[in-house]
Structures are given as structure tokens and as C-alpha cells.
Computed example of a mutant assay.
Amino acid sequence: MIEPGATIGILGGGQLGRMIAVAAAQLGYHCHIYAPEPESASVAAEVALRYTQGEYDDTAALAAFAADCAVVTYEFENVAIGVLERLALDVVRPSVKALVTAQDRMNEKTFVTDLGGKPAPFAAVDSAADLAAAMARIGTPGILKTRRDGYDGKGQWRIMHPANADGLDLPGQPLIYEGFIDFFAEFSVIACRGGDGAVRFWDSARNVHENGILATSTAPAPAEVLAQVPEARALAARVADALDYVGVLTCEFFATTDGPVFNEMAPRVHNSGHWTIEGALTSQFENHVRAICGLPLGDTALAAKGVEMRNLIGAAANDWAAILADPASHLHLYGKAEAREGRKMGHVTRLTL
């Protein structure tokens, strides 16, 4: 067990790191943020004790950072694996193995398939010929994605008809082609696994995306979604056990007439779980800190009859005064200076008591 007063290292300086650091402070821990941007540009640095500016492949800087920390976690999974492996940081939680699996969509879907999960049909694409073969086997419509990095709809190309691929300028990096899924809802399974193997699940919220970005998460989800949650939870538990996972793990699913279809996993706290700060007895951020520090996990039950989280994208955050005028709303602004289109500036959670 890592006792309060120790320092938790967080790789990544964004809003997820910020919320982890707030939860850690409430439990008596200090946080040290490591990220490539200047300290003045990190919203996590505003609530942390220390900050190191360094690239994710800077072995010396990472080693010095790790030496200051009792445990290291991350809010951003696209960290250079080779560097972490060379440092042999046995205090990284979740493990490097979880990063290796989640960083590459091909690895991720193969891993989940081997565990009995059901993702959308997929194929690796490294050339125009590979894409043609994938479309011939899987069909259209489909979506072409970078195997690494892309998020919030970035690094993705919709291919509604084979002609859409004619002359497509491939980005020169490994890709994956996935067939479209006919689904009636999207939902997340957010789990927390302790070092002793204990697992807690939060209620699965129904997620609604707009322009590839999560707009709302609502719990409890409708009955037709809830009926698919047990199967999805069983898969998430198998994933966590196979990775010897410690911390919060998020698995996203499509609800279909044939049962839950796995979409992707994130080895970290997740936007679709932000509602847990006020809406659950223990938030995803607090339980993540509890898990990585070896503390008992907290109760994940709903704290209200219902809860909805809405992301504040771009200029929507400027309506903060109107949001606060509603006594049932809880506002979280991330402290970002520039409200760009498509940028998550904060979120608001509304409880139904």
C-alpha cells in the first residue's frame, strides 16, 4: 500500500490528469505531472504539486520524474512503449502491457477476439491494394482508421461506397478498416480493478456522439441497453484479468440486435465516466487513485436516481453563468485558454434526485 503523503506521477497534462490530481489530493497524495507542453499550457499542472516538461521519449527526464514518484499512472496512452520498457518502471499502473494492447487498434481487436469478444469485422490496411481487399471481404459502408493515435473522430475516413476509396490519399502509416455496425445505442463499461483482483463496475451510461465527439452520457441507460451490460461486463472483466490490470479500464460497446459489439478500450479514466464525480458514491478518479495505491476500492453505486453528463465543446463553455443558474447542475471547467471548435472545454453534470 502506498500511504497518503506520497507522490503520484501522472503522464499527460490534460483534463483527465487534472481530475486524477484533484481526487488524489482529497486522499492526501501529491501529484507530479509529466508532459511535453510548457507548464503554463497544462491544465493538470494548475492542481499539482510539481511539473516536469519533457518529451515522452526522453529517457533521462522520465527516469528523473519516476524517481520522484511512488507510483506512475497516465491520462494519455500514446506514450512511447520502448522508453517505459527500458526504464523498467514496475511502478507504472496500469501496466505497460495494457498500453501495448490499447495503442494499436489491430492488436486491441485481435486481443479482444481471442478472449471471446465480438468486435466489428476488421482488416489491416497498409496499401491501396489492402484497402480494396478489405472492402471486398467486409463490404461497405465502412470506416478507415489509423491504427494508432486518433481520437474524437480524428484519423478516420468514412467509406460509404467503394468509389469513395478511389484516389484516397492514405496517410503513410498503418491503418485498419472496419465494417459499419447497425446499432441502436452506444454504451461504456467502466471498471476498476485493484491489485488484489477485486473489480468494481459503475452503471453503464448510454453515450451519444455528435461529429465523432461524445456529447452526453446518461445513467441509468434504457432497458434495452441494460440487457446487454452483463455480457459486456463479463468481457471487460476477462480483459482486465488477462492484462493483470490495476486501475480504471473503459470498454466501449455498440448495442445491437445481436448483442454487444466491442468498439474500443481505453486503459485509463474516460470522458464517458465523468458523471461519476457527483453521480456515483465513488468517482472513477478516486477509485483509480485507490487502485494504483493499493487502497480498498470504493462503492460505485449511483448517488442519485439519474444522472446526465454533457460535454461543453468549444464556445458552449461560455454559457457557464446560465448553467450555474440551475441548482441541479454541477459545472466543471478545465481551465483551457482557447475555446476552439471541437475542443472539450468542460462538462456539466445534472442529477435527478
Rank of each mutant, 00 (worst) to 15 (best):
Arg50Glu: 14
Glu341Leu: 06
Gln284Cys: 12
His32Phe: 15
Met309Phe: 06
Leu27Gln: 13
Val348Ala: 05
Val208Trp: 01
Pro171Ile: 06
Gly116Glu: 06
Ser95Gly: 15
Thr349Trp: 04
Phe253Cys: 06
Ala129Gly: 01
Met160Pro: 13
Ser40Met: 05
Lys118Leu: 12
Glu278Asp: 08
Asp166Thr: 14
Leu297Glu: 10
Gly273Lys: 00
Pro162Trp: 03
Val229Trp: 03
Glu341Trp: 01
Val248Gly: 03
Gly13Pro: 06
Ala234Glu: 11
Thr216Gln: 01
Leu168Thr: 04
Gly5Ile: 10
Asp152Asn: 06
Leu144Arg: 09
Ala48His: 07
Asp130Asn: 11
Phe76Glu: 02
Phe187Asn: 08
Ala48Thr: 03
Ala232Ser: 06
Ala325Glu: 13
Asn263Trp: 06
Thr113Gln: 15
Glu178Asp: 12
Ile313Glu: 03
Cys69Pro: 00
Ile277Trp: 00
Leu333Glu: 03
Glu75Gln: 01
Tyr334Ala: 00
Met135Ile: 08
Leu175Pro: 00
Ala67Gly: 15
Thr73Phe: 00
Arg340Ile: 00
Ala339Leu: 10
Gly342Lys: 13
Ser95His: 12
Ala215Ile: 07
Ala134Arg: 04
Leu115Val: 05
Ala303Ile: 08
Pro141Cys: 14
Leu115Tyr: 07
Ala219Pro: 12
Ala48Leu: 02
Gly14Gln: 08
His270Arg: 03
Val239His: 02
His330Arg: 08
Ala236Leu: 11
Pro260Cys: 05
Leu49Arg: 14
Asp241Thr: 13
Pro36Gln: 00
Asp203Thr: 11
Lys344Gln: 02
Leu302Arg: 15
Phe111Lys: 02
Ala291Ser: 11
Ala221Phe: 04
Ile81Ser: 01
His32Ala: 14
Leu281Ile: 04
Leu243Ala: 08
